[in-house]
């Protein structure tokens, strides 16, 4: 059972990355644009109700890629709207995604304090 979950995670996560690579190589989009495209696609797919079932199927295979980040933002906004009304549209998204963003800011800053960039060989 557990092994089957991990296989699903590997395959689905891998496929999302493969698609990204294909788009980069075929369209010459920069990685930054891919990130933006993925997160926006995640928000939209989640809003129309497609990403939720994908998350219950693929778990981390769907939440770790950036589309999953978009899904968290969208679900957070929707849940907060249900709870608090229109103000939730402004508070819900970032509240739900706070963990990942805060971790990235905090560890990013910490790393900059501790390390210096190295020249490539």
């Amino acid at each position: 059972m557990m092994l089957w979950t991990y296989i699903k995670v590997f395959l689905c996560g891998g496929m999302l990355c493969l698609m990204g690579e294909w788009i980069i190589l075929k369209t010459k989009l920069t990685p930054a644009r891919i990130l933006v495209a993925y997160i926006t696609a995640g928000v939209i797919l989640s809003a129309v109700g497609l990403y939720g079932p994908f998350v219950s199927f693929a778990q981390a295979g769907a939440t770790v890629p950036l589309t999953g980040f978009g899904h968290i933002l969208a679900q957070g906004a929707i849940a907060a709207v249900q709870e608090k009304g229109w103000i939730g549209a402004f508070t819900g998204g970032l509240t739900a995604a706070a963990g990942g963003i805060t971790a990235a800011v905090f560890f990013g800053f910490l790393t900059a304090v501790l390390f210096k960039p190295k020249a490539k060989q």
Partner: peptide, 18 residues
């Protein structure tokens, strides 16, 4: 200088891209 040109025209040195 490789490192200054990378940062100015492309990406930071430790940015992982192809």
């Amino acid at each position: 200088h490789f490192c200054t040109a990378e940062r100015q025209y492309r990406f930071p040195l430790e940015y992982g891209c192809q």
